[in-house]
Simulated scan of single mutants.
Amino acid sequence: MSGPLLVSILLCLIAGSAIDTGSICVVRAVRDAVDRKFALVLGCLVTLLCATAIFTIDTAMGWQLRTASWAWPTARILAGAALFGAGAVLNGACAVGTITRLCRGDLGYVATLLGAIATTLLVPGTLLPGLAAADTAEAGLAWLVIVAAIALAPLVMLRRHIVRRIVLAYATLGVVLAVMANLRGDWTWLRLVQEARAGLPIRLEVVACIVAVLVGAAVTARFRRTFRLVRPNPGAMAREAAGGALMAAGAVLIPGGNDLLLVYGVPSGSPHAVAAYAVIVATMVLLLGLIRTTRRWATWPIP
């Protein structure tokens, strides 16, 4: 086993532990924000700020470990973002939130993975990710200043909502996941499914990293006594499978999910990533707002 792979696995174990402590599940963050609870939103801003700092350092030092695709938003990308946001709400969790729930013993969320895999296998090969860069622009100090201004203003104004343990977990996630994105590119489980569908060889080192994240999250959940086996509910699993299918379709069109956009796409300064993440959040705000008004007949188990 090579040195870089060992470092990657160690980082993923740390990321898995941090994910259980402060999940960057945007569905939960938006739901809490609708209820005027801002701790997770502030945590996501900390993750974004730390990830952008990593990209800025990478650019300034001239390492250029892996430059993210830099492109302008298109109708396909925006439609994919709306689909992803709708799928995450239907599922009750985004891609990271799904992993968190699984590692806490909610086995019903296996349906999310199955729905995502099934959809990806049905997607025509011509629609599989192939994002052409529209420019060679890279994140620099100016973009870091912009992100810092956007992130720090709410952090200062809403500082009474800050929970130090959660902020530390989110900062750890921002640093670790940004470093992993620079080292491995898109290493999410959705991307692995897409690559398998496209006939590309499975990247075993990425599989090892994903397993390390799962182990780190599961062990931490057990240690924090948040691990409880939950019996799958057939009705909920059908909804989760549909949500996973929509998220997979959206991730193909963007390409990438909210987790990759937060720690890789937006920190790179790419306009397509900024627009896609904004549409994902806007879609969630709209749908969660509608769900909130219909709670008499709809219940959505959000982690």
Rank of each mutant, 00 (worst) to 15 (best):
I254D: 00
V219K: 00
L11P: 01
A132Q: 15
L107E: 02
G62R: 10
M1V: 15
L192S: 13
S23R: 02
A75G: 05
G108F: 05
A68H: 12
T136I: 09
A217H: 04
A248Y: 01
A298Y: 14
P255F: 03
P154M: 07
I254A: 04
I146R: 12
L107N: 03
A81D: 01
A198K: 09
A275W: 07
F223C: 13
A221T: 02
A51V: 07
A33P: 05
A116M: 12
P271R: 08
D32A: 12
A149T: 10
L90W: 02
L214D: 00
V274R: 10
E205H: 13
R292N: 14
L183K: 10
C209A: 14
W63S: 14
T52L: 09
L5T: 05
W72C: 04
V179L: 14
I99D: 00
A133E: 10
A221L: 06
G22P: 03
G115I: 01
L144W: 09
V263W: 03
P234Q: 09
V263L: 08
L262W: 04
V263R: 03
L190W: 09
V215P: 01
A71G: 08
I150N: 04
L13W: 00
A33L: 12
G43R: 06
P267K: 07
T136F: 12
A282N: 11
L144G: 04
W63L: 15
A132P: 01
R28A: 14
V266G: 02
L229P: 06
R295G: 11
E195S: 14
M61D: 12
V213G: 02
V263M: 11
D35H: 15
D35E: 15
P234K: 09
C209E: 10
T126S: 15
F223M: 13
A298I: 15
